[in-house]
Nucleic acid binder design. Structure first.
Length: 306
DNA sequence: GAGCAGGTTTCCT
DNA sequence: AGGAAACCTGCT
C-alpha cells in the first residue's frame, strides 16, 4: 500500500504536470454520485479508485488515458486530466462514458410497464450507464475475473499494468496490449497472481497474435458472430464473452449470467433451478434487444442487497 | 484453517 | 446432454 504520488513533489524538478480544471463534457452526462460509483466500481471496470483525500472524486485508467471524475452540484459528470493530455481528452471521455447514448431513453424502451421488478430497479438507479471501454483490455480484465471478487480482479490488473504496461503518466501504467501479452511467458503472468487464468491469457494472446486484425474487427461484428468468436478463445465462456461485449463493445443484446443474475432471476422471476444458458435465453427473449441494460439494473439492485 | 468466490474446462455418468 | 470436480489465489 503505497501512498499515491502527489502532483507537486516539491523537489524543483517538475516530474509531472498538474491536473486540468474540472469541466463537463460537450454532451453533458447527468448522474448521481451513487450511480457514478456503481458505474465505475460495480464490476464493469476495474481500474477506477476513489482519490484518497478528495471525497467524491474518482481516478481511472484506460488505454493510455488517466482521468479523474466527479459529479457537480448540477448532477453533471465532470472530469479532469493531467494538463499534458487534457487536450485530446474530451473525445476520449465521451466515448468511454458513451456520452452520446441517452440511457434514460433506452431504459424507457425496456418492458418496465409490464415488469414491476424491472420498474422498481430502474427507479432505484436512474441514469445507470454502460461504459464503452477499449475492447482489448476489457477482454483481458474479464479473462481475469472468473471466480474472483472485484477488488481482487482490480489487484491483478494493477499488477499486470505495473509489470508489463506502458507508462501513461507519472507512475500510472496502461494494461499490456495483446501483442505485448503474446511476448510474456505464462510463468511471468503467473507472477501477477492469475493462477490458472495465466494459461488462458497466454494461450489467448498467442492465438490472437496469429489472427490479423481480430481485435479491431470483432467489435464491428454482429452480436451473435462476435459472441461465437469470443467463446472460441481459451478461458472465455458465455458469461465472459457477454461481459466483454456489453462493457467493451456496447453490444446491448449481451446478457451476462453470473451467480448474481442467476440468483436474481431465480428469486424475482421464479426461475429456480434454471441453468445459466437457459436464463440467458430467457433474458434476451423477455427483455429484448436492450437486455444487457436490463441486466445491469437487476445486477446493481441485487448487489445492493435486496 | 477450511471454505469459497461476479467461470471455464475437463472428465465423468 | 447434464452434472461434478478441478483449477490458482487471496480473503473470511
Amino acid at each position: 500500500m503505497r501512498a499515491r504520488k502527489r502532483e507537486n513533489n516539491g523537489s524543483g524538478v517538475a516530474k509531472t504536470t498538474g491536473w486540468s480544471p474540472w469541466q463537463s463534457l460537450p454532451t453533458p452526462v447527468r448522474i448521481s454520485p451513487e450511480v457514478l460509483a456503481e458505474t465505475l466500481a460495480g464490476g464493469q471496470a476495474f481500474r477506477w479508485k476513489r482519490v484518497h483525500d478528495q471525497p467524491g472524486v474518482w481516478q481511472g485508467v484506460w488505454a493510455k488515458m488517466v482521468a479523474r471524475a466527479r459529479v457537480n452540484e448540477a448532477c453533471e459528470l465532470e472530469w479532469s486530466a493531467p494538463e499534458t493530455m487534457a487536450a485530446r481528452f474530451a473525445p476520449a471521455l465521451e466515448t468511454y462514458f458513451a456520452a452520446d447514448v441517452n440511457f434514460a431513453a433506452l431504459a424507457d424502451q425496456l418492458p418496465w410497464r409490464t415488469d414491476i421488478i424491472l420498474e422498481e430497479r430502474i427507479r432505484a438507479q436512474p441514469a445507470l450507464r454502460l461504459l464503452k471501454q477499449p475492447f482489448g483490455e476489457t477482454l483481458l480484465a474479464f479473462l481475469c475475473s472468473s471466480a474472483k471478487r472485484i477488488p481482487h480482479i482490480a489487484q491483478i490488473c494493477e499488477k499486470m499494468a505495473a509489470r508489463f504496461g506502458e507508462p501513461v503518466w507519472d507512475d500510472v501504467k496502461a494494461l499490456p496490449t495483446w501483442p505485448r501479452l503474446a511476448e510474456i511467458s505464462e510463468q511471468d503472468l503467473q507472477g501477477c497472481g492469475l493462477g490458472y487464468r495465466a494459461r488462458f491469457i497466454h494461450d489467448t494472446a498467442r492465438l490472437l497474435a496469429q489472427e490479423r486484425d481480430w481485435e479491431e474487427r470483432l467489435p464491428h461484428a454482429p452480436y451473435a458472430q462476435a459472441h461465437e468468436w469470443l467463446t472460441a478463445l481459451p478461458g472465455v465462456g458465455p458469461k465472459i464473452a457477454d461481459c466483454v461485449l456489453l462493457f467493451g463493445a456496447a453490444k446491448y443484446e449481451a446478457f451476462p449470467v453470473d451467480t448474481w443474475i442467476l440468483q436474481a432471476m431465480a428469486k424475482r422471476y421464479g426461475l429456480h433451478g434454471w441453468r445459466p444458458a437457459q436464463v440467458a435465453q430467457f433474458g434476451r427473449a423477455h427483455f429484448g434487444p436492450l437486455a444487457g441494460l436490463a441486466q445491469q439494473f437487476l445486477f446493481a439492485g441485487e448487489r445492493a442487497g435486496k
